[in-house]
Design a protein around this nucleic acid. Sequence first.
DNA 1: ACAGTAACCTGTTTGC
DNA 2: TGCAAACAGGTTACTG
Length: 270
Amino acid sequence: MPELPEVETTCRGIRPHITGRRITDLIVHQRQLRWPVPAQLKRSLKGQRIDSVGRRAKYLLLECESGCLIVHLGMSGSLHIVASGVPAQKHDQVDFVFTNTVLRFHDPRRFGSIHWTRRDPLRHKLLRNLGPEPFSEAFTARYLYDRAASRKVSIKNFIMSSGIVAGVGNIYASEALFLSGIHPQRAAGRIALSRYEKLVANIKHVLGTAIDAGGTTLRDFTREDGRPGYFAQKLNVYNRRGEPCPVCGHPILLRTLGQRSSFYCGRCQH
DNA sequence: ACAGTAACCTGTTTGC
DNA sequence: TGCAAACAGGTTACTG
């Protein structure tokens, strides 16, 4: 999916178009997403004004008058602002209808999901156990180091765990580890605090730079107006198997780790 | 608590 | 060229 930078890009993109506006209708073309779209959602949403648009981890939070709409883009989802009357295409699953405008949820693989809660969204089952936001002050080297104590899981899988830190997916985990010179398979509990200092700084850096570039578009992701993100050209290792390492020239390696592709330099990362 | 795996889906790429 | 297998940015739920 959309990892954190793509969700943040989407959040910033849709915010000015829908904040303060009222949802006049909900059209569900496809109810079966990762979880079914709630049967009562249309009744809950009709007439609701969007008070604010925010993000927690990879969840978009659309705060309304009497509840919060929670949207996750899954692996292939995107949200687009289109004019009323633009016909839905294949894989356009749900339309949030406003006067003159539609917020359209597009998701070929249907791993995304849509939820509605009348309580604090941060206490929702899916958000309750998330780790700190990577840009927050709570996300420090000491925090990671302590959580990693005696853990044998690979550092890559560790930083991709949503309960450890929110929003770091496969692309940015690979990139941050490369910038930090840490081998993706190294056990999380066998990394010095000083190396965690580097890693935390690089996670913040790579995510921040990607947000500035409008995210990474490899295949499905596009912004609210349909443009791609431009961070793909700045990737050092991800999707670059066999290409020379930008630091030492050794060919970038690919190994499958926890069912996910891991790209790294065998000479620079230990 | 932790580690590992299957599962949710469809489209595209890879390999025979 | 054709067809089937493998793979794709996420996360939960289940197993041992």
